[in-house]
Design a protein around this nucleic acid. Structure first.
Lengths: 225, 225
DNA sequence: CAGTATCCTCGAGGATACTG
DNA sequence: CAGTATCCTCGAGGATACTG
């Protein structure tokens, strides 16, 4: 995107963030995605070429840096990029306030939703060692997914990992999304039966602690009243 | 712009605001531009066709409505559009915090700067009747412009209106911009002589009251210390 | 796993001329 | 003053195949 040739703060922000996908990449980096393939999985429709290009542009603009030193190399927001948090949050809150309703059927990819859930798992609430949860989507395709935790690090699997499951979570995708988004309380979903937990009483209780909600859940909750 | 097919608040916001020019159009509407030609003048580089298209899209998305009833028909933000103010402001503040320095020479159009100044004039501080101020840009092209006020309504003229001037403001464009942006206090500019006011003592004093700064001036000032 | 190189398409938007 | 219609260009990005 060419610049606007206007020395206006809003124009400058639009210049850096205005290209297609860029804001979503920043959002994903904020929510804990750092590897190329992790980012790629969270952006259905983008091509690998384009993601690569956008990441290079973000590096050139100083919002993102590639860290090679760590155990797993990856992309991280710089201080400049992290400083965008309040602004991106304000944009999201605007959308929540005004468009918070009726997700269209084809806007709910089970894979992406599971990725978001994975990214927001409350790690401290997870048990040590291996921990496996199966999600049953009730008629969606794919019909199920697994959240496999090893040493408090969750990973979504779409193929049966063939481990014993500590808990089974059953809900259709819209319900699971409404819960994640904070528009339906876990307790209310359990009560009405749109969300069903299958496991020991301890595990069912533990779910409410490790299952993290969207950062926009408080805003959505505030709307509901 | 096609949507992202993701039911995420940030994606939704990016969908509505992410097209080139759209955010700047919203910004201009927030700052008091309402007529097609007024918007057009504030967006150097856009084509009339594209502006028209973007305005139609903004109407379809519910951010803008066309009001035909008023004395001058024009485009106005709806409640949905106005609700974007905090988010757009946060984006601008991010840019001010991080890119607040070194405007490039060709990013400072005298015409656009004068338009911004016109839009932020403090009307209550203007005298009734006709009031005319000439701006001398010291070597820029065009070299001067007039702010003609009739009944507290300011209009920028780039051709000599042939009225007597109540005040002459001399400053090069970068200085005038720094003052408008809040990065150089009027008092400091006057002291160092980069801004010169020519008129009666009363008129010179009045200038500091009607000359309004950018909405981002407080953020810029805060940076300066 | 994390990208890059190459080719090709198609649609956004510029230029120009026009209108109520 | 406030746009619209038409034509045409060019460059963003998809598809595909490839690599350290």
């Amino acid at each position: 995107m060419r610049g606007y040739g206007q020395y206006c703060p809003v124009a400058k922000a639009a210049e850096v963030l205005g290209e297609r996908w860029t804001m979503l990449i920043v959002r994903d980096l904020m929510e804990g995605a750092h590897q190329f393939n992790d980012l790629y999985a969270g952006l259905p429709g983008i091509s690998r070429t384009l993601l690569s290009q956008r990441l290079r542009r973000l590096q050139a603009d100083g919002l993102v840096e590639r860290r090679n030193g760590a155990a797993r190399p990856g992309y991280w927001l710089t201080a400049l990029g992290l400083d965008l948090q309040p602004a991106i949050f304000a944009l999201g809150e605007w959308a929540v306030r005004n468009y918070g309703h009726d997700p269209k059927r084809d806007e709910l990819h089970p894979e992406v939703l599971m990725l978001w859930i994975e990214r927001h798992v409350q790690r401290d609430a997870l048990p040590p060692g291996r921990y496996v949860v199966r999600f049953e989507f009730r008629g969606a395709r794919p019909p199920r997914a697994w959240l496999v935790v090893e040493d408090r690090t969750p990973t979504v699997c779409h193929d049966d990992p063939r481990f014993e499951c500590d808990l089974v979570v059953s809900a259709d995708i819209p319900t699971l999304h409404r819960v994640f988004a904070g528009r339906l309380a876990v307790s209310a979903a359990l009560r009405e039966g749109s969300l069903v937990l299958d496991g020991t009483a301890d595990e069912r209780r533990r779910f409410t602690r490790w299952f993290g909600l969207s950062p926009f859940a408080p805003a959505a909750r505030a709307l509901a009243g």
